[in-house]
């Protein structure tokens, strides 16, 4: 990782967090409704995985604002979607959980836990069939690894030797239930071991995530077959804005926040890449102003017209 990329990753992590805090604020003010799942604490994983998997298709979950932005979708279009506006990335018809943009090869935004994994398998099949050089990455949480869709997908991807990276964000909680109460072990990669190469990394360390995803991407695209990468991470907020996070002790939260990826990566920027305080402050200020502009854009964006109700159900009327 060179200095330019390191700065870009820090900028996008900071941008992502600022976006999420703004989303939280405008949810509390009533501009944003529905379910809102914040990514605060998991930015290293969301940003560095997208930077390492810069090309190829990505299928993700409902906690995807930061990934969508790191994939190249402008924050203003993501914010406008959260504000349910016609100018939002999904026209105000998807919302926070359903951000799609095929021009960035980003396919949501799926809110059926594990339901998008078979879709990623099918897309990987298509890419192999087309002789594409790019593979597919599917991102899901530890909770999704307990479902049938996940196991069916491991089996098919391994049998067909598909160019598919399974990226498991293990934050240890399925809403409020700890993974050790629903699975026999803490490391979910064990479930994939009979089928494919498994790897793990510290999901709170952007550099480690970047390195592991890059390696896994290289493997799947060189005909190795699918790879399972487990990144251990920690979300700082509740599952969604409707979750008071009462199931985690203050000690557990303190331990969790000690691993905050932003100050850690900032320190590395200064020590390893010799970034000055001024350089870093400039990045942070730029990110803040982009988010302020995104909020202004979302506030002033158009509401969908009534006719949008019946639009885009089918291609052919």
């Amino acid at each position: 990782m060179d200095k330019l990329l390191a700065k870009e990753i820090y900028y996008e992590m900071f941008l992502g967090r600022a976006f999420e805090y703004a989303a939280k604020e405008y949810y509390m003010q009533g501009n944003i409704s529905g379910f809102l799942h914040l990514d605060i604490g998991q930015e290293a994983l969301s940003v560095a995985s997208m930077k390492a998997f810069a090309k190829g298709d990505v299928f993700s979950t409902y906690r995807e604002h930061v990934m969508a932005i790191a994939r190249g979708i402008e924050p203003k279009y993501v914010m406008a979607e959260l504000f349910a506006k016609a100018d939002g990335v999904s026209g105000g018809k998807g919302g926070s959980m359903h951000l799609f943009d095929p021009s960035h090869f980003f396919y949501g935004g799926d809110a059926i836990v594990g339901g998008h994994i078979p879709n990623a398998v099918g897309c990987a099949y298509a890419r192999a069939y087309q002789g594409s050089e790019e593979g597919v990455m599917v991102v899901f949480g530890d909770g999704a690894t307990n479902g049938g869709a996940f196991f069916e997908s491991l089996n098919i991807a391994a049998t067909q030797k598909l160019p598919l990276l399974f990226l498991c964000e293990n934050n240890e909680y399925a809403i409020g239930t700890h993974i050790t109460r629903t699975a026999p072990f803490r490391e979910q990669a064990k479930k994939a071991e009979p089928f494919m190469l498994t790897m793990s990394c510290d999901g709170m360390d952007a550099q480690a995530v970047y390195k592991s995803v890059s390696k896994a991407k290289d493997l799947i695209e060189k005909g190795h077959g699918p790879v399972f990468l487990e990144a251990f991470t920690c979300r700082f907020e509740g599952h969604s804005m409707s979750d008071a996070n009462a199931y985690r002790s203050s000690l557990e939260m303190k331990h969790c926040k000690n691993k905050d990826p932003l100050p850690h990566f900032k320190k590395r920027l200064q020590e390893k890449w010799l970034c000055s305080e001024e350089e870093i402050t400039a990045l942070e200020q730029k990110a803040q102003s982009v988010i302020e502009e995104a909020v202004e854009f979302a506030k002033n964006a158009n509401e969908p017209e009534d006719k949008a109700l019946y639009e885009h159900i089918f291609v052919e009327a």
Partner: peptide, 22 residues
């Protein structure tokens, strides 16, 4: 394509294939 007895994946994979241009 001969698939496993896994109907969720038969349709789920077809959705992904369609997204991927097939």
């Amino acid at each position: 394509i001969d698939t496993p007895i896994a109907e969720l994946s038969i349709v789920g994979n077809a959705v992904g294939m369609a997204i991927g241009g097939l």
